[in-house]
Design a binder for these strands. Structure first.
Lengths: 191, 191
DNA sequence: TATGCCATGTAAGGGGTTACATGATTGA
DNA sequence: TCAATCATGTAACCCCTTACATGGCATA
């Protein structure tokens, strides 16, 4: 039920098309909310039918038409109502940890390889987030003030990934895998 | 599709009823997998129909009968197959951060109060996890070895919460709310 | 020539949530 | 007496995923 409210939050700060929203879910909101394009288009349809958002068709030449959505009064009220209620605590459902939990059926190096590939994903994301943080720090003071709350959510993303990486270090130590040798197994086989 | 595999992992280490599984999802797996009792019973029915698990009925006096499930060969194969494939990266969908992101529609003290109530949840969980960690540390060496992988998942839970709490400190500083005065507003109003 | 971006959708099916339902025992 | 624990489920609904579908423009 919260994708709706995530969309309302985004539309409150700016009118947008489904495609715009998708990009924002992959961008400024990407570290704490995920949504696929199908989800978004379906949800927009429902919200429009429910009167929470208006739609204006913007024809473009050489491009498909854009349907630009805007909050209605009812949408704004729904958003304020949702904000006034306690947010539901987050539910973790992490397949990687299920795998590790049952990992005695696998070899330690298989587990280490899995951790390693996730690590690469997280390291890349961390770079992106730190880049965004840099850009926010370089904004003039009043602009920075406008980004105060999104900045705090970004900080969550950064601290989260850093903690994940520290955990991955622990795991790799525990699995006792020589990471530095990983790419040279065939060249320098253990004697 | 992964609840199924979480159940397979749990049944691999021990036969269990739906109710047992529920307790384990709230216990040793609680920090990385959540499942409701309806979800579990429905899933068990499907898995039984698919031949992944067997069921034995254990009558009890003064208690409802228990249906105890056990992996079949097909179930074990499915589990091994799933383990051999890369785990899907985790998807964050955190309503609290959506709220903070759109929090300019709310007052800073409302936001701080929300963070505060989540903090209480997390602090309690951290205590529980640290307690479990202590108990694992006090086990004899061979028992400790058996808990090696679940222990690593527990470490993830601990590091995760600690990083959340550090973030909450940052947020509370940024919101500039005097936390120590929170419970004494009526007694000592700001002059 | 192929990939990726722009921009929108539908349809089927699977998964998850909410509400409803039962009923005895034990401890505060 | 009230709530919690033990122990199971059904039914309706909503949400999300997967696959399918279109089609032009720009860049490598």
């Amino acid at each position: 039920m919260s994708l709706q409210h995530a969309i309302l939050v985004l539309l409150e700060s700016d009118d947008a098309s489904g495609y715009d929203l998708l990009k924002r879910f992959n961008g400024s909101m990407g570290h704490f909310w995920h949504a696929s394009h199908q989800q978004i288009y379906q949800q927009l349809k429902k919200m429009h039918a429910a009167g929470l958002i208006d739609c204006e068709l913007q024809p473009q030449d050489k491009r498909p038409d854009r349907k630009v959505y805007r909050l209605t009064t009812a949408g704004r009220e729904e958003l304020l109502h949702w904000l006034s209620q306690p947010a539901r605590p987050f539910k973790y459902n992490d397949a990687l940890l299920v795998k590790l939990f049952g990992g005695h059926l696998l070899g330690d190096d298989d587990l280490a390889a899995e951790i390693h590939s996730h690590r690469e994903l997280y390291e890349e994301r961390l770079k992106t987030f730190l880049g965004i943080e840099q850009r926010i720090h370089q904004l003039p003071g009043d602009e920075q003030a406008r980004w105060r709350l999104p900045y705090l959510t970004l900080r969550r993303g950064i601290l989260e990934i850093q903690s994940w990486l520290r955990w991955a270090d622990e795991v790799e130590q525990a699995l006792d895998v020589d990471v530095s040798a990983e790419n040279s197994v065939e060249i320098h086989p253990t004697a």
